[in-house]
């Protein structure tokens, strides 16, 4: 992803942000769409496109759990572990998925297909315990068996053209 492409993407929204710092987040998200994470080159492109230093851009990126500074799987499984989900058994769901994927806690599967992580509240308390795939569908309330089916379905899908994370 080049700085020019990012600038082009930002152009129509520039006027919406009084403080240019606010452009960094949409830029990061856009850049992340390409590879599903933010390699250093993308970070520099964001810095160039927004006019901030790489250091500053990285400090913003590192603040957000969903900006990935390391490569992640084709799909990211976000298991909510905040109060409602936790009370309704998110630990069990998490452990079940980890087992199924052969992971020891959070991490990425060897085939690069899935990354499993715990996240804080995703605003789906009414569907607790809930899991979100990338920044898309929220699935819940979940039983362990549902999670297994979901994963099998996802495995069969082709890689997305752009990652939405």
């Amino acid at each position: 992803m080049t700085a020019d492409e990012i600038e082009e993407y930002l152009a129509p929204m520039r006027h919406e942000y009084a403080d240019p710092r606010s452009l960094i987040l949409p830029a990061l998200r856009y850049a992340q769409g390409e590879a599903g994470w933010l390699p250093p080159a993308s970070m520099s492109a964001v810095a160039e496109a927004t006019g901030f230093t790489e250091a500053y851009v990285e400090s913003v990126a590192s603040f957000y759990d969903r900006c990935y500074l390391e490569p992640v799987g084709r799909r990211v499984l976000n298991v909510c572990v905040t109060l409602s989900c936790m009370l309704r058994g998110s630990d069990e769901i998490f452990d079940h998925i980890a087992d199924y994927l052969g992971l020891d806690g959070e991490g990425t599967t060897g085939d690069g297909m899935f990354t499993l992580q715990r996240v804080q509240c995703i605003g789906a308390c009414d569907r607790a315990p809930c899991l979100q795939v990338d920044s898309g569908e929220q699935v819940g309330p979940l039983e362990p068996a549902d999670a297994t089916c979901l994963i099998d379905d996802l495995r069969d899908l082709p890689a997305p053209e752009r990652y939405e994370r």
């Binding site: 250091a55 990285e58 400090s59």
Partner: peptide, 17 residues
């Protein structure tokens, strides 16, 4: 432009990018 905060909360760290 060197020093920044990385991460947040109790993992927050002063670092150069």
């Amino acid at each position: 432009g060197h020093l920044t905060f990385q991460e947040r909360g109790d993992h927050i760290e002063i670092a150069t990018a």
